[in-house]
Structure formats: structure tokens, C-alpha cells
């Protein structure tokens, strides 16, 4: 890994220069009390005062709705067109846990049957994480094997060293390329111990006890107890950086059509509804159990890793105040 520094007051210049090269910069912007990634046009729009963005950067690779292809029927002659993704993007200000999530998401979409669209998007995007200086009650990265110091899945990782400069870890070749494009902005440095600058997030549960325990409570009432409050919306899955379920929709008329991929959520009753009317996950507690089991058991079986990175978004968004931390602790204690 290479290490650089960037003067904090050079950040606006960094963004302006990237923008001049024709790339889109996405940076955190405030709407109401929440922070979202938005297209950068001027530096004063950027919000630095946030623990975590409301939506995760997964939307950059896996948008909430995207075109898979369009087709046309010109009097019996059919033609199919796949989208060409050329727009180059730089995402600034995601958190280190988001990097871990992107790493998982790419593993999911690119491993066995690589998804071309996602691959293209990934190739076109440089992810810059901004290491956390603060955290809230809903953050639990350190309980699920990562921490604010994590660099996995980021191309570049910025840490504000509190001395007027960012310490920049160059994690990937893509990150290196971006840094190399602006040699006058970045100075070389050695590896620095950044941990003191970072948020100290407490560990809430013991993952190594929890993971083997979860399947043993599969048949118990614990899921019902936890999920009576769940109203079955899709909010938790949609804000989650690792939730990868999608629905495929055709929007067509006799002359032309589009196939779209849209987000879907296992919290919806319709998610598992069969055409026969039978629903194997008949009630909300079954659906909630699936969510937790997927994150902490099925992913381990199928992909050899848990698929929760502790970003806390699902907790912050839940209309009913459900907290996965609390529920995991209750499994641990069960």
C-alpha cells in the first residue's frame, strides 16, 4: 500500500480538478436532518457533519432501478440494446464499513456469473472513504469484524489527522491512478498510525459466539418476540449496503420495451408469495428471521462471510425502532 497526504484546504481543488476531467463526483449533502450522496457542484454544498449517510453507496453500483436492456419490434424485426455505461464516478465520503459492504456486494454479483452492468459500474467508479471521527449508538462495525480503520473495499481511504491534512491510504490501483492524476496535490508519506484519530466504537456482542448460536435458535419464538414491532416495510433492506435482492420488471408495449432491475426486500409479504397463493414465509416473524439468518448464517455458508458490516442504517431508519444490535444481543443471551 502507498501512503500520501493531502492538505485539507486542497480538497475543493481536488474535487474541482476531478470534475474538470469529466468525472462525476458524489459527495455527502444534507437534506433535512439526513445526509445523502449527491452530485458535487460546489464545495459549500458538501456536508461533513454526519455519522453515516442515510442511503448507502451501494446505489452507485446497484441503483434502485436500472435498465438491463431495451428492445424494439420494427414490424417483426427485433433489436435488443444493452446500456453502455461510460460515466466515470468518484464517490467521496463513504465510511470504511461501506467499503467492506461494497467488497461483499461485488463478491455477490461478480463471482460465479459476473454481472456485466455491475462490473462496468465498478470499473468506472473510484470509492474514497472518509474514516470516522465520530459514531453513534447504532454503529457496531467493531462487533462484526471491522472498524473505522478498515480499508477493505475502498480505493482510497482519507483520515483527517487533525493537523490540517488528510492521511491518504492508497488501497487499489484505481485509487493510485486517481492520486497520480493530481501529483501537485498529494505528497508522499510513510505509513502513519491513524488509530488515535479515529472513533473508538465499542464492541457490543461476540461475533464468534453469535454465529454458531444463531442457527440453533431457528425454531424458537425469539423471532416473533423480536419482530412483533416490525411493520414489514422495505426500509431496512433498501438502506442496507449489502442487501442485494432485486426484482426484474418488464415495461413494454407491442412495439418496444425495457427490462428493469429494481430493489426488492425480504420484508415484503409478496417477496416469497407463490403463484398458487401459498407463502412459505407467511408471517412477518418468518421474514425477519430470514433477514437475520441471511446476514449471519446463509452468507457464511454460501460466501464464507457474514453480510452485515455494522453501519447501523437499518436501525436509524426503522419506523418501529427495531435494532439489530439489540436482537443479536438477545440471541447471544438466549
Amino acid at each position: 500500500m502507498n501512503y500520501k497526504t493531502l492538505n485539507t484546504n486542497k480538497l475543493p481543488e481536488f474535487f474541482e480538478k476531478i470534475k474538470k476531467t469529466g468525472k462525476t463526483v458524489l459527495a455527502p449533502r444534507k437534506k433535512g436532518n439526513k445526509t445523502f450522496f449527491a452530485t458535487f457542484d460546489s464545495f459549500d454544498q458538501i456536508n461533513f457533519d454526519y455519522v453515516q449517510t442515510a442511503l448507502s453507496p451501494k446505489s452507485v453500483l446497484f441503483p434502485r432501478v436500472e435498465e438491463l436492456f431495451t428492445y424494439k419490434n420494427d414490424d417483426g424485426t427485433y433489436s435488443v440494446k444493452e446500456p453502455e455505461l461510460k460515466n466515470e464516478v468518484v464517490v467521496f465520503g463513504m465510511r470504511p464499513c461501506d467499503g467492506v459492504a461494497l467488497d461483499y456486494l461485488c463478491d455477490f454479483f461478480l463471482n460465479e456469473n459476473p454481472d456485466k452492468l455491475l462490473q462496468d459500474r465498478k470499473n468506472n467508479t473510484t470509492f474514497i472513504s472518509l474514516a470516522c471521527k465520530s459514531f453513534d449508538n447504532d454503529c457496531f462495525c467493531t462487533s462484526v469484524g471491522s472498524s473505522p480503520a478498515e480499508t477493505l473495499g475502498s480505493d482510497l481511504c482519507f483520515t483527517d489527522m487533525g493537523n490540517g491534512s488528510y492521511y491518504v491510504e492508497v488501497v487499489t490501483d484505481k485509487g493510485q491512478k486517481l492520486v497520480d492524476a493530481f501529483p501537485d496535490l498529494f505528497a508522499d508519506t510513510k505509513e502513519i498510525n491513524k488509530v488515535e484519530q479515529l472513533a473508538q466504537v465499542p464492541v457490543r456482542f461476540e461475533l464468534k459466539n453469535l454465529v454458531p448460536k444463531i442457527p440453533t435458535v431457528f425454531e424458537t419464538n425469539i423471532w416473533l418476540d423480536q419482530s412483533l414491532a416490525c411493520i414489514g416495510c422495505g426500509a431496512c433492506a433498501y438502506v442496507c449496503p449489502t442487501c442485494s435482492c432485486f426484482d426484474v420488471q418488464d415495461e413494454c408495449n407491442p412495439k418496444a420495451g425495457t427490462r428493469l432491475r429494481c430493489w426488492d426486500s425480504c420484508a415484503f409479504g409478496q417477496f416469497t408469495l407463490h403463484a398458487s397463493g401459498h407463502n412459505p414465509r407467511e408471517v412477518q416473524s418468518n421474514r425477519w428471521r430470514n433477514r437475520v439468518m441471511h446476514k449471519f448464517n446463509y452468507s457464511v455458508q454460501n460466501m464464507n462471510t457474514i453480510s452485515c458490516v455494522g453501519c447501523g442504517r437499518c436501525i436509524r431508519v426503522c419506523p418501529a425502532g427495531m435494532s439489530i444490535i439489540e436482537h443479536l444481543i438477545s440471541v447471544e443471551e438466549a
Binding site: L55, R64, I231, G232, C233, G234, A235, A237, Y238, C262, W263, S265, F268, Q270, V317, P319
Partner: peptide, 22 residues
């Protein structure tokens, strides 16, 4: 709108067993 339907799920008046969107 990301169509998470939290608004529908949270609304006591949206109690249809099958919503029109479904």
C-alpha cells in the same frame, strides 16, 4: 422515493391485504 413502502406500512389506514401496487 425509493419505494420502500414504509409510508404504507406505517399507515393504519393502509390496511389492504393486497395493495394496488402489488
Amino acid at each position: 422515493c425509493i419505494k420502500c413502502y414504509a409510508c404504507r406500512a406505517a399507515c393504519p389506514m393502509c390496511y389492504c391485504t393486497k395493495c394496488t401496487v402489488d
